[in-house]
């Protein structure tokens, strides 16, 4: 009768058998298994990976120089020898420019989310964990930003700051901080009131330790998924800013900007003119589907 009386004597083996029976897969194993079964998510992941890799290794893949113009090759149709996807209004190789364009477009789309995730996540964590007046202050400021439609806000801030990649990223970051803060705050508030956080406090741990060990691990997941779902919006907004001349400037290859400069050629060679738009569309769509797939895979009832 040393430890648990019920476990003494003969039934022990039986107990252990029962314990083994309860054993199931770990969380990440379940998530991985679910992703494996989800074809749409797999395909989206692969497509996205290809887009990203080709943008990163553009120097190795691309056949031509993205800046090399040629008056003779202007607006060549798709399939022209040496120009598999045709040429743009300056006679530059479309395929090359689309590959290189991915660099800026993805960078301008993803980096605001990464920065907003860091800033908004921290703000939401602080607001949710501390509650009270701090929460009130942070959340009311966010509400003010929230009152504007995101496109309008991005254009307004970019316009005020002036054109340029840096300014475009700053404005997009400001657009995405409020929604991320809000989601983080609500998740944190829910987690904070759970018994295990109380138990951690009862064991004498300080706030920072509790946040690090108990809150972050439970808040990051849902906020991360939410942030990935914003990337698609961000890519569209970034391209939009460039399209309006508030982002990159010519002759840089960037999908939004390319769409703008090819705009006049739409009656001459509509297929080539539509290509940058198609890239924006597909990238944004795959990001969206991937984030949806992740969301449902990670929604394991623990």
């Amino acid at each position: 009768m040393t430890t648990a009386p019920a476990l003494d004597g003969k039934p022990r083996a039986a107990v252990d058998a029962a314990q083994v029976a309860v054993r199931s897969r770990g969380y990440w194993a379940t998530v991985a298994l679910r992703v494996r079964d989800d074809k749409v998510t797999i395909v989206c992941g692969i497509v996205l990976l290809l887009i990203i890799l080709s943008a990163v290794f553009a120097d190795l893949i691309a056949l031509a120089d993205p800046y090399k113009a040629s008056m003779l090759k202007r607006l060549k149709p798709i399939g022209t020898p040496g120009y598999p996807l045709g040429a743009d209004e300056m006679g530059r190789d479309m395929l090359t420019r689309l590959i290189y364009g991915g660099r800026l477009s993805l960078f301008m789309g993803i980096s605001p989310i990464v920065i907003a995730f860091a800033i908004g996540g921290s703000l939401g964590l602080v607001a949710g964990f501390l509650g009270g007046r701090v929460n009130m202050l942070i959340m009311r400021v966010m509400d003010i930003f929230y009152a504007f439609p995101s496109v309008l806000l991005a254009v307004a801030i970019s316009g005020a700051l002036g054109a340029g990649i840096g300014n475009a990223i700053v404005s997009l970051t400001l657009v995405f901080i409020p929604p991320i803060t809000r989601v983080t705050e609500s998740v944190t508030t829910a987690v904070r009131s759970l018994d295990y956080v109380e138990a951690a406090r009862a064991s004498g741990a300080g706030s920072l330790t509790i946040i690090r060990v108990h809150i972050l691990s439970n808040v990051l997941g849902p906020v991360f998924i939410y942030a990935t779902s914003l990337i698609s919006v961000s890519i569209i907004l970034a391209s939009g800013l460039s399209f309006l001349g508030l982002g990159t400037e010519p002759p840089e290859p960037e999908w939004g900007l390319m769409l703008n400069t090819l705009r006049q050629s739409i009656y001459v060679n509509p297929w080539v003119a539509a290509l940058p738009g198609a890239m924006i569309f597909f990238t944004s769509l795959t990001f969206n589907l991937l984030s949806d797939g992740l969301r449902s895979a990670m929604d394991v009832r623990l």
């Binding site: 759970l194 018994d195 295990y196 138990a199 060990v213 108990h214 439970n218």
Partner: peptide, 15 residues
């Protein structure tokens, strides 16, 4: 020290 009623919510699910 304290033991809570809900055995589930008193353990961090990610740990």
């Amino acid at each position: 020290q304290m033991v809570f009623q809900d055995s589930y919510s008193s353990l961090n699910p990610r740990l």
